[in-house]
């Protein structure tokens, strides 16, 4: 009789073999949402960060190490965005499947054209990344590119469901490209709109929609503005009456309110990722929301 209990205990300890969903560890919610779109019921997706966290300032928490340990596929932005914590997670996670060079290691920034790659880097320039500006998710065309690579990886890692992944990818591509066209038409009026950003995290969006960045409220990436610098920004932006101030959900700063108060420029909080606003539930509604918020700001500027 005792053996039966022992067997029961052991059977609980042994992990369920095969047919288990592919475990995907995404560093940011946007890649988690993409993995969910492409993987459907065949994947079990977890995101290391949620929208309210600045993905640069994360600690290698025990819960993250535990999740990395079990992952079959890791998808992150790369380009130094996760430089402070991803290397520690990979080293402490004791998981050879998701190390650099494996199919289970996917850095999105290695598959898109990077912007603002500095000729030289120095810490006096603030939080600059040698690999270029890492906020690539703010151009939907980049997401389309990464989707192709991710779909291929899913097919390699879980070849039993190859056809389903291909079907899901084709379906997603069609819907996504249609949506991009739609957004581009809706956003055509935004072309040339002068914007002041808090952190330079929108260069890909600016390029896509043709927004015109006048300056950033941070004097250097990652360095909070001083009052003297803000006064300077105020001077520089006086010639733009229809200015809009852009920041993301985790950048709450008195500098933004102060600047907006002085210039009467509308402040737009744009979700930098899925979940950044209540409306941004998935990849599609996220971009819908970005477009809606920008167009609203433009309207209120014209009033």
């Amino acid at each position: 009789m005792k053996y039966r209990y022992v067997l029961l205990v052991f059977s609980l300890l042994i992990p369920l073999p095969l047919q288990a969903a592919l475990k995907i560890f995404a560093c940011e919610p946007d890649w988690a949402a993409l993995a969910q779109e492409l993987g459907g019921e065949h994947v079990d997706v977890t995101s290391a960060t949620q929208a309210m966290q600045d993905p640069h300032y994360i600690q290698a928490r025990p819960s993250l190490i535990a999740r990395v340990r079990k992952a079959d596929l890791l998808i992150c932005t790369g380009a130094g965005l996760e430089a402070g914590w991803l290397p520690v997670l990979l080293r402490k996670g004791n998981n050879p499947r998701i190390l650099d060079g494996q199919a289970g290691y996917l850095m999105a920034s290695e598959h898109v054209m990077m912007k603002e790659i500095p000729v030289s880097v120095d810490r006096s320039m603030g939080d600059v990344h040698a690999e270029g500006n890492p906020h690539i998710q703010t151009d939907p065309r980049n997401i389309a590119r990464v989707a192709g690579v991710l779909a291929d990886r899913l097919k390699v890692l879980d070849s039993a469901n190859r056809e389903q992944y291909q079907r899901r990818y084709e379906d997603f591509s069609l819907r996504w490209n249609t949506a991009i066209n739609d957004w581009q038409q809706k956003g055509a009026s935004l072309k040339g709109m002068p914007v002041v950003v808090y952190h330079r995290s929108w260069v890909y969006l600016q390029d896509w929609l043709g927004l015109k960045e006048i300056t950033s409220l941070e004097p250097k990436p990652g360095v909070p503005p001083s009052s003297r610098y803000l006064a300077e920004v105020l001077n520089r932006t006086q010639e733009y009456p229809d200015l809009v101030v852009i920041h993301s959900q985790y950048q709450e700063s008195k500098a933004i309110q102060w600047f907006s108060g002085k210039t009467a420029a509308p402040v737009v909080m744009l979700p930098s990722t899925v979940g950044g606003t209540a409306e941004a539930k998935d990849l599609f509604s996220w971009y819908e929301d970005i477009l809606k918020r920008l167009l609203n700001a433009q309207r209120s500027d014209n009033d």
Binding site: Q102, E110, V112, M113, V149, D152, V156, L157
Partner: peptide, 20 residues
């Protein structure tokens, strides 16, 4: 290509990704 079961990092570049 996706039909191949083995992954090699070189595949990524063949697909037209920017070369580092």
């Amino acid at each position: 290509v996706p039909v191949v079961a083995e992954y090699s990092p070189a595949d990524d570049n063949a697909a037209g990704a920017p070369v580092k």
